Amino acid sequence: SEFSSRSGYGEYVQQTLQPGMRVRMLDDYEEISAGDEGEFRQSNNGIPPVQVFWQSTGRTYWVHWHMLEILGP
């Protein structure tokens, strides 16, 4: 990996993601499973900070930056 740390990767995702971009989950996290795909909606200063609309659940759920792989527009 070109990223030395999880936080470095998270910063990359945070700087790159734009609303509407497709993402894939890298880790299991509460209701969301690794491999689930969705659409980035928004972020804020909460914890976790990233709101994604997940195809698997049909609704939005908040996750962490480093848990997401960017699939593209």
Rank of each mutant, 00 (worst) to 15 (best):
E2R: 10
E2P: 13
E2L: 12
F3D: 14
S4C: 15
S4R: 09
S4Y: 09
S5H: 10
S5E: 14
R6N: 11
R6V: 14
R6T: 14
S7H: 09
G8L: 12
G8R: 14
Y9N: 07
Y9V: 00
Y9C: 09
E11T: 10
Y12V: 03
Y12T: 14
Q14Y: 05
Q14S: 11
Q15L: 08
T16H: 13
T16W: 06
T16S: 11
L17W: 00
P19R: 09
G20M: 10
M21C: 06
M21I: 06
R22P: 02
R22E: 00
R22L: 09
R22K: 10
R24L: 01
R24T: 06
M25D: 03
M25F: 01
D27E: 14
D27Y: 14
D28R: 04
Y29L: 02
A34P: 11
A34L: 08
A34Q: 12
A34K: 15
G35L: 03
G35T: 00
G35W: 00
D36V: 03
D36I: 02
G38D: 05
G38K: 04
E39V: 13
F40I: 06
R41I: 15
R41Y: 07
R41H: 03
Q42M: 12
Q42R: 10
Q42L: 10
N44Q: 15
N45P: 06
N45S: 12
G46T: 15
G46L: 13
I47G: 07
I47K: 11
P48F: 03
P48R: 14
V50W: 06
V50L: 02
V50S: 05
V50R: 01
Q51E: 09
Q51P: 05
Q51K: 12
V52T: 05
V52P: 10
V52G: 03
F53C: 07
W54Y: 03
Q55N: 10
Q55P: 13
Q55H: 15
S56N: 13
S56V: 10
T57C: 11
T60P: 12
W62D: 15
W62M: 11
W62N: 15
W62Y: 08
H64G: 06
W65P: 14
W65A: 04
W65M: 00
W65V: 03
W65R: 06
H66S: 04
H66M: 03
M67V: 02
M67G: 01
M67W: 05
L68V: 05
L71T: 13
L71D: 07
G72T: 10
G72R: 13
G72M: 05
G72A: 14
G72C: 08
P73D: 12
P73Q: 11
